[in-house]
Design a protein around this nucleic acid. Structure first.
Lengths: 215, 215
DNA sequence: GACAATAGTGAGTAATTGCTCGTTTTTGTA
DNA sequence: TACAAAAACGAGCAATTACTCACTATTGTC
């Protein structure tokens, strides 16, 4: 008798290097197919074809279509987590202008790939609650960090710092995404500067009082 | 012989009052079904069932599933167009704070219905290019109006007023939508005030110089 | 070269879904 | 009541699609 009656859902654990490469190939192809055709028309057969594999092989590596999508989405989230961690690794920058700039640049770089794919992953497709929870956790973490910074700098009568922090995060994310989704006729650095100015101004007027212009 | 060999796609022209009511009933049911199940799982059979009609009747009134969705989306757009027109009907308010307040309140009221339906209509479903064009036209119209107002008030060295106007429109739309999509733990008026403050501050610092605080 | 573990294949299946069309029911009018 | 126009019906068809499984091919090891 074989080792086990049935290897259950997760099909194949990579033993040979070839296997890992194939897995990667499927994910890359899926990213392209989803970006081009959207979620519904991004069929598993199409993905397999784009990868130059048979449909059977695809199902050796992923238990179902949504698992492929989920994996792609998680990678995007990980990228985001990494970017946030890196930005705060050596302590936050001294001025709010610099802090906001870091946020904006991070968002731009995370979204620099295909914005259409991002849209499919996080808006168009049926996102499982677990994924939404992760996304939310990432955002909340950022909001927490910024709230702490705001509290440290706040003038006594300043308004709710958590709300201000939420606005920072939401505005950076939403507006970056929207900017990239509209074909950007406007140039990128103008957008960047305007967004930084918008948010820096708001934070400062909301009661933050750091040593602002040391230069 | 009958009046015409085949009535072609647009199925039924309402003669009896009942017919108009049925059409309306289908749209209302579709709105509920799409909001609850999303686009893909919002099947035409489910919509018919929710309306208490047979599937055949549904197809007497709409040539296909997407036509129902399109009609719902167009109604939302019309609502938006109407709201914008109303806000600017008697000439824009005098101060930028008031102007921004009108924008924010309009966005909140247009989105006050089911935000999930809005998401299905404008993000999740396969939006035909014509619809996207209409949406864009509506936004561009708003941007045009605001740009004109900004130019009238602008200080000489002020930055690109069109970009500022774009930010206003994009920020109001995106942040309102995002606020409603996150379960709003934060209360509505706090959100409203913060958004108004954010955008008013930006417009003024971007070089607008109206007779600001007459009160 | 023998062999077994690993990787790849693709025709076919089961389920779903948008939609048709021949039929029946309801309504308004005489 | 008679009748036709309008409205409603719903079984079932055609197309699509996620996924299976019995099979073949490749690879590494002795």
């Amino acid at each position: 008798m074989p080792t086990l009656p049935k290897p259950l859902r997760p099909r194949k654990t990579p033993r040979q290097k070839r296997s890992e490469e194939t897995r990667e190939l499927i994910l890359e192809s899926a990213a392209r197919v989803f970006a081009e055709h959207g979620y519904a028309a991004g069929t598993t057969n199409r993905i397999a074809e784009a990868a130059g594999l048979s449909i059977g092989s695809l199902y050796q590596y992923f238990p179902n279509k949504d698992a492929i999508l989920l994996q792609l989405a998680r990678r995007h989230l990980d990228e985001g987590r990494l970017a946030v961690a890196a930005a705060f690794a050596a302590g936050p920058p001294a001025t709010w202008r610099e802090r906001v700039t870091v946020l904006v640049d991070t968002a731009l770089s995370v979204h620099r790939g295909d914005p259409r794919l991002h849209q499919v992953l996080f808006e168009e497709s049926p996102r499982p609650p677990a994924l939404l929870a992760e996304l939310r956790a990432l955002q909340d973490d950022l909001v927490d960090r910024l709230t702490a910074l705001l509290r440290a700098d706040a003038a006594p009568g300043a308004p709710d710092p958590r709300l201000t922090a939420w606005f920072l995060v939401a505005a950076v994310e939403s507006l970056t995404h929207r900017y990239l989704a509209d074909q950007p006729t406007r140039d990128r650095s103008a957008f960047r500067d305007e967004l930084v100015a918008l948010l820096t101004g708001h934070v400062l007027s909301a009661g933050a009082r750091p040593a602002e212009p040391p230069a």
